[in-house]
Amino acid sequence: MFQVGDKVFYPMHGAGIVTAIEEKEFRGELEKYCSITIPSSHMNVMLPVKKASKAGLRSVIDRRTAKRMLEDYYDAEHEPQLPWKQRFSSNMEKIKTGEFEAGLEVLSDLQYRNKEKPLNASEKQMLNNAKRLIVSELSLIKNITESQAEGLLQLPG
């Protein structure tokens, strides 16, 4: 169970802060809701507490884990070229998990491919979305601005 003030990550939306846990009536029944403010999109989300786990809501990762994963990100090996549809599907599944490491894998893969050859519109959008999600979590983990967090994702070369 999350508490007010907890930093959380909501897949496909980004990282946010739990601002309230309150009971609301819905269809004649009282249900507990978790209110989350997501700074990167200036959005407030209300999620039924009993559905939080199924929706993939999780605590943001800790600084030490983030540091280790970023080191792996900089040194990432890239798998052989997959057909576009298979690569897109695989990357979409990784993003949907909401896992930080999976998002970094997508970001690294698409940045690498973009250097080799320009991405198509769908993959450019996926690259931007993956970056937005990772940046939102990094900025909360490290208590830095999104611009500073984006700077941490610059690959050498």
Rank of each mutant, 00 (worst) to 15 (best):
G103E: 01
S122G: 09
F100C: 00
G16F: 14
I144D: 05
P80R: 11
K94Q: 10
P48K: 07
S108R: 01
K94N: 09
F88K: 06
I95P: 02
D72I: 15
V45P: 01
M126A: 01
D6E: 04
S139V: 08
T19F: 06
N44K: 13
F26I: 07
M92R: 14
K32P: 02
Q111L: 02
A76V: 05
A55Q: 12
L140P: 01
L82S: 06
G151K: 10
A149F: 03
I141T: 03
K67C: 14
E123N: 06
K96L: 11
E146Y: 06
E23W: 00
M126P: 00
S41T: 12
K142F: 12
K94S: 13
G14R: 11
S122D: 13
E116H: 09
E79C: 04
K85I: 06
A102T: 08
L110I: 01
I36T: 01
E23S: 08
M92W: 13
N128I: 02
S136M: 10
G28Q: 04
E116W: 13
K67H: 15
K94F: 15
A76M: 08
E137S: 09
G5R: 07
L119R: 05
S53A: 14
V4N: 05
E101G: 00
E99M: 05
V49W: 05
V18K: 07
L107M: 03
L153W: 03
E123H: 10
L127P: 01
P11M: 14
P156S: 07
Q148L: 07
E29P: 00
S53Y: 07
T97R: 01
N128A: 13
A121C: 08
G98V: 04
G56A: 09
L127T: 03
N143I: 11
K51P: 07
K85T: 06
A76L: 08
H13L: 15
P118K: 12
A121R: 14
G103R: 00
H42S: 12
E146N: 02
A76S: 09
A130V: 05
Q148A: 09
T37N: 08
R68K: 13
E116Y: 14
N128Q: 14
